[in-house]
Design a protein around this nucleic acid. Structure first.
Lengths: 144, 144
DNA sequence: ACATTTCGTTTACATGCGTAATCGTTGGCT
DNA sequence: AGCCAACGATTACGCATGTAAACGAAATGT
């Protein structure tokens, strides 16, 4: 059973080879994605400015990550004069969705309630959280 | 800012060096942990029997993983005649907790409600899930 | 025109991980 | 006593990742 990629979360197809080559977005790469999701397109310089500050990364690091994301097809680069502007190709919602579902699948039988239950048991829910969840459920009910 | 291990989920201290060396439990390793959490102590043979079936792993693979977990201090091995019996040193609850919290921190500002909200927006909540969540909230309220 | 700056591209390198095979030791069988 | 089987320990190896530095080409300033 090929299960090397059971944990593959967000993946893309490599379009030069027709082979299906799922590629995860790594933790470091996802920091870059976050920056682009927050506001794009952005030049490498701007991405660097943000990540240098909030992750302490050097220029080379950010460039490598941008390139790896390009190869993985997770972002695109559009020429803008002498430089490129980068923008995400995969949506943040899809990414979040896949990551979350992956965690639920691995740890909670794919369902949300057991996760909430776990948090409750571990006393990680303060009254505000509970209130917020309650409001959410009400809204969900209203909607249908 | 050293943040290489921001994502470190479950970690242990290497006791020969006093250095703090956080080590994640990898995906494959966590499969071994699952087996031991389900029932322990267990001989390598028994762990293998399970993982050979449900992951398709060869003997060498399982032994490597057991050894890596030992080195990481995530499990212990107690001599039982000529063989060893393995048992977890870190609790499943702690592991699950750290993994879950890690995801929430990375994607949902550390809070649970936004995750639930995300699932709801993505229409990943069927009525049963909603009902279950509602029951949970009631129970939580009752408890305090 | 030439030197310099600025980008993107290529190369680097240690460590972790998935996935085993092989080695070595020790107890048991004949 | 010697051989075999069973187990743990050691070694292997390619790919991913974190973390860059070095290289090269193009644009810019002088």
């Amino acid at each position: 059973m090929r299960n090397r990629w059971l944990d593959a979360i967000v993946y893309v197809r490599n379009r030069q080879s027709m082979e299906t080559t799922p590629q995860r977005i790594s933790a470091a790469e996802s920091e870059v994605m976050k920056v682009l999701w927050a506001d794009s397109p952005k030049a490498a310089e701007d991405v660097l400015a943000i990540l240098a500050t909030n992750q302490g990364w050097a220029e080379g690091t950010v460039k490598t990550l941008l390139n790896r994301l390009l190869k993985k097809g997770a972002i695109a680069a559009d020429k803008d004069g002498r430089r490129f502007l980068y923008r995400p190709l995969i949506g943040r919602e899809d990414y979040v969705d896949a990551e979350s579902q992956g965690l639920l699948d691995r740890l909670f039988d794919g369902r949300l309630a057991p996760l909430v239950s776990h948090f409750s048991k571990r006393e990680k829910l303060n009254p505000e959280d509970v209130a917020e969840l309650r409001r959410l459920l009400e809204k969900i009910d209203d909607d249908q």
